[in-house]
């Protein structure tokens, strides 16, 4: 068993350093070893159309949130594809009115309106089996970093995954 444990720990270190696997998971015994894990990672999900416009998916189902959590622990394409496939099993209804995107300053105060605005998208009903999913699903994977000296938090877009209708309905 000791050899198995050491091999799994070594594998975890490699995956953690090169493929983003959270140190909390995977057998490397790195619990409470890094801020980088599910607490500083988040995802934003959009459905994009052929004209380039995109709408954010805001009200996710429990299973979809769970899939996102799994993908954030190990942020590789196939895990986000599982999220996208789950999204494509649902028909999403958009709110009739567009909602403005508010600009926020570094103190967390509103500082005006951004140029874009979105419809709010919520799950409506299961996607009809005979109908093809339209539009790409775009998942932005973000990471937050914290500077304790300035008490500032910075968010960085780590990667954007785009999935075509063919991929999500395979």
């Amino acid at each position: 068993m000791p050899i198995v444990a050491l091999v799994i720990a070594a594998r975890q270190v490699v995956l953690s350093n090169y493929h983003g696997l959270a140190v909390w998971k995977g057998g490397g015994m790195g619990m409470f070893a890094s801020m980088d894990g599910q607490s500083n990672r988040f995802a934003q999900l959009f459905v994009t159309q052929s004209d380039g416009t995109r709408q954010p998916l805001t009200h996710l189902l429990h299973a979809q949130k769970e899939a996102i959590g799994n993908a954030l622990n190990y942020p590789v394409r196939r895990n986000f594809l599982a999220v996208a496939k789950s999204i494509a099993t649902i028909e999403w209804a958009s709110s009739p009115d567009r909602m403005p995107v508010v600009l926020i300053d570094s103190k967390g105060e509103p500082a005006g309106r951004a140029s874009e605005s979105y419809h709010m998208m919520a799950p409506y009903r299961p996607w009809p089996r005979d109908k093809k999913w339209s539009g790409n699903i775009q998942i932005e994977y973000w990471k937050m970093s914290y500077n304790p000296l300035t008490r500032s938090c910075h968010a960085t877009l780590a990667e954007t995954f785009t999935f075509t209708p063919d991929e999500v309905q395979q």
Partner: peptide, 16 residues
């Protein structure tokens, strides 16, 4: 504010 698609944080920096 970072996580909501309906807010856009200027320079992606927030003071906590």
């Amino acid at each position: 504010f970072f996580k909501s698609p309906f807010s856009q944080v200027i320079n992606n920096d927030l003071l906590l």
